[in-house]
Design a protein around this nucleic acid. Sequence first.
DNA 1: GGAATAAAAGGACATTTGTCCCAAGCTCTA
DNA 2: TAGAGCTTGGGACAAATGTCCTTTTATTCC
Lengths: 192, 192
Amino acid sequence: MIRTNKDFIVYIDTLRKKSRNQINEQVFEPKTTILKQDRRYNSVYLIRKGIAKCYITDENGKEFIQEFLGEGMEFGELEIFSNNLTICSVTSVSELEVYSFSHGTYRTLLEEDPIFNQLVMKALADKIRYKAPRHSYQHSYPIEDNILRLQRLFPELTEVLPKKDIANYIGVTIRSLNRALKELKLKQENSK
Amino acid sequence: MIRTNKDFIVYIDTLRKKSRNQINEQVFEPKTTILKQDRRYNSVYLIRKGIAKCYITDENGKEFIQEFLGEGMEFGELEIFSNNLTICSVTSVSELEVYSFSHGTYRTLLEEDPIFNQLVMKALADKIRYKAPRHSYQHSYPIEDNILRLQRLFPELTEVLPKKDIANYIGVTIRSLNRALKELKLKQENSK
DNA sequence: GGAATAAAAGGACATTTGTCCCAAGCTCTA
DNA sequence: TAGAGCTTGGGACAAATGTCCTTTTATTCC
């Protein structure tokens, strides 16, 4: 659920030693919205530390969380390849340290640095791989299973995140999430 | 819903004029399964003509259709970037003409042909862009809206595809799909 | 510290969707 | 041509989920 890509961080760290001025560091407070949906920006970000959520808001104001981004994950990069508006908003969950690249710098790296190119390519492919089974799973299994899966994979997250975010991630209402949680608790007590 | 990428086809056509032997043409009958989930292959495919469906099957045998691939769409390419098993099965819907690349050829092109590299990069980014709003939409709107959207975008498809595929694409059971279709018909008659 | 605001929890009911059937129509083939 | 096996369509009921509303409990901010 929290996605990471350590290799990317490692490589950018070494890059920065060579050309410090091209890649900036930035820190965002928790709950800062860094990108808003349907806008245009001129930076690509790479997370160095912390967690961000990437989500779509529909016309009714409902949020649907696409993924939680952790160390080494990029955002704002899709707009490099096709000249479109952002599809997601990105908001920091915890304090967030990022590297930021101007579109120009990013493009130059893509063209001139084959390792960078490869890392970006792999990152894109991983995002696709990750999304496919996720939505399929959420459709096919009841809420309870989705919660259990989440708790198993990221026990720490369920304590840090507000219920609303967990619900938005699973794609259900808070009411339904609460119901499922209650029934899980009941089951666990009965099985003692 | 049927995704296409004409630019890619155009470029590969010109490539083939230069080095015909590297890129093969292949034709598949309708309903041929070209890739099976959780396997390993040594080819990447690019659709020249026809439609294929790309889907995940879960443990209960339920299919969940990820996307319908049309002209210029690739499949089997994700496994180039990370050394993993396929996540989707791919089956031809209509007769399917494809170009196929061995992993070796594909890798070489990626490394040595910057235009090819860029086209692949953009294709990956587009796949991500496409998936995000789709699943969000399907969660947020009732089945009826999803059908209407589909009929509006691809009127021809709803006539070619079996109901099962349409249901699997929207992520509901056939029963629910039929119910929604019936109610739509009723509404349309009433509004006359 | 106290008011205002947001988050968490859940009752009651409505709606949606799924499950399990059955039946009609079509296609393929032995 | 009879029957096996799909696909389509839908009835009846069960289960899951959403909506609306209220209450309680944290959190934030003057």
